[in-house]
Design a protein around this nucleic acid. Structure first.
Lengths: 333, 333
DNA sequence: CTGAAAGCGCTTACAG
DNA sequence: CTGAAAGCGCTTACAG
């Protein structure tokens, strides 16, 4: 049997009230001497607080649930690191819950788990809730905050990169390097608002330079490695590539493009420059290392938790920056 | 205010006891009619069970805590997927807790969190507990089980790959391909028992073929990308490589070796064959894709949870297999 | 099939 | 600084 506060009370001769006070460190409500004795006995008995009881009576919790989806995009590591660091500063504890991959059942289960334990708040990392689950979440009184996902519904509180800015940044960078025929590959333009925004940023940058995208330059996809392969195959249909540079919707797309190009003997960056979006560690372990628009995932997590706890509304943007590596060639104009 | 069982009792005219029975589905203790009414009202009120109260009174929990460490090795995804799938089958819910990276404080915090919530069991994925934390874990009455980590102390219950077998398998495969001078790189032979076992397997395979390792063939490391770079630099000190093939301690080590070789114009596999240990998705996104000894991480998670719940003792091994890709060249003997 | 009552391990006004 | 007591939301023998 786990020792309880009662056991300690009995052993020390104090009341459970006093024991409770020292154990939860209610300063000013006990003497040093009392504390020493109680803590000592608690240690001897291997006492461990029963959080269920505490949460039941205080009706609050210091745990934050972070729901993650199980897709292979591995930038969530950085986000979680950011959340964890902030949580440590604040004395919160975070539990991570898998919410499946666009699986409404799994989402609901994770959500219910969080809600039933009356956590202090829910962070949703790139999880695109089904309509019912969104309703469920909203109807609960638990604060929530989305991270790394952009909604059309601007009423949802979230922190994310400025996706329009990302598209614009990548494109204008390539233009400055002298490129004129620039592709955009591997993004989802129908289900994903993110994709639409990045496309708009891309088009804006082109327009600003009196350029406009040929339809064959833009290859939709699902942000996966395979989407990168498919995109390159589409570009390589004719002996001459229609583009001199391409923006990949994710690191995995970029790597897919890179590898397929290598298989087809298209040298990167000599014949094709690549800028990828995300900028995770993956960029540096391929050859050539991929130049990227790098998102600040760590910060998303760190300030995401902050925002959640201050009950912030609306969208907060996190800064993205261009990281030059070796996959872009400057061409003379 | 969250609706409670009491509110439902009031609204339906039943007692809290009856409401509790239908809500926790104690078959045979209520009529269909009662159930219908209670469930209906529960739904209207947006009732959500307070798990703290339930756990407090039943003194049991159906949650499993999975402690993970924050190193970059990303095979934990597969392990967690395995755990999650098994948990779903069993109706358990799993919460994931970060236990830092060989950080005793973070470990303790994660452990305490799990223990204070009196979870049904604790799974530790590749987390190498400090001695005090191990004592803490053992002294609690909570069942625990290690995954993907090998101890010298065989009394600790765990599921993992047979590390001796892995070293042996990789080495004997390369020998069968005609290699005679085979390196081993990026493993830790001092802190990590895993490293020692793999080394022993490597030596056993060599010995079986009347070969023995030159000391310069074996380059220690910490399983990281940088360790791979360093290992290749060590091998490449002289104009001629001392080896024709190398076994990398992890996928990241393998990629480090590969990239450094490419930078130094050492063609893989023509001048250097590589077999890597782990076999995660990373192996297929580099060029050439890396032949690997592939560990069955998914299964580790899946049966790990099973074992935990049946309170199994001792070590369970999971099967590893050789996956041929493009990084090994067969040489004529 | 249903209800009254006790109790899980804690916290916290209230009174001293 | 300390204690007695009520109560958090549930479950479950016990009695009908």
């Amino acid at each position: 049997m786990q020792a309880t506060i009662k056991d300690i009370a009995k052993a020390t001769g104090f009341s459970v009230a006093t024991v409770s006070r020292v154990l939860s460190n209610k300063k000013g409500f006990f003497s040093e001497k009392t504390a020493a004795k109680v803590n000592q006995v608690a240690k001897e008995l291997g006492y461990k607080k029963n959080m269920s009881a505490t949460e039941l009576v205080t009706k609050k919790s210091n745990v934050i649930a972070a729901l993650i989806n199980s897709t292979k995009t591995n930038f969530s590591d950085s986000i979680i690191k950011g959340i964890q660091d902030k949580a440590d500063e604040l004395g919160k504890t975070v539990i991570i819950l898998y919410a499946g991959d666009r699986d409404a059942r799994a989402q609901k289960k994770a959500l219910t788990t969080a809600l039933e334990r009356s956590v202090a708040g829910i962070l949703l990392l790139s999880v695109d809730l089904s309509p019912e689950n969104l309703t469920l979440l909203k109807s609960a009184r638990t604060p929530f905050y989305f991270i790394s996902i952009t909604f059309q519904d601007t009423a949802l509180p979230c922190i994310t990169s400025n996706d329009h800015g990302i598209g614009y940044l990548a494109t204008s960078y390539l233009i400055r390097q002298g490129h004129r025929r620039i592709g955009l590959a591997g993004l989802d333009f129908s289900d994903s608002y993110t994709g639409k925004l990045r496309l708009a940023g891309y088009q804006a940058a082109l327009a600003e330079n009196q350029l406009s995208a040929h339809s064959e330059w833009v290859q939709a996809g699902d942000y996966s490695y395979e989407a990168g392969i498919a995109a390159l195959d589409a570009y390589a249909q004719n002996s001459e590539l229609p583009i001199t540079a391409v923006i990949a919707g994710s690191d995995m797309v970029g790597i897919g493009i890179l590898n397929r190009a290598s298989a087809l003997k298209i040298p990167v960056p000599q014949k094709l420059s690549i800028v990828t979006i995300d900028g995770t560690d993956l960029c540096r372990i391929v050859q050539p290392p991929l130049t990227s628009v790098t998102q600040d995932f760590y910060k998303m997590g760190y300030v995401g938790l902050e925002r959640l706890l201050e009950n912030a509304a609306g969208i907060t943007y996190t800064q993205s920056e261009l990281t030059e590596r070796k996959s872009v060639l400057a061409v003379k104009k």
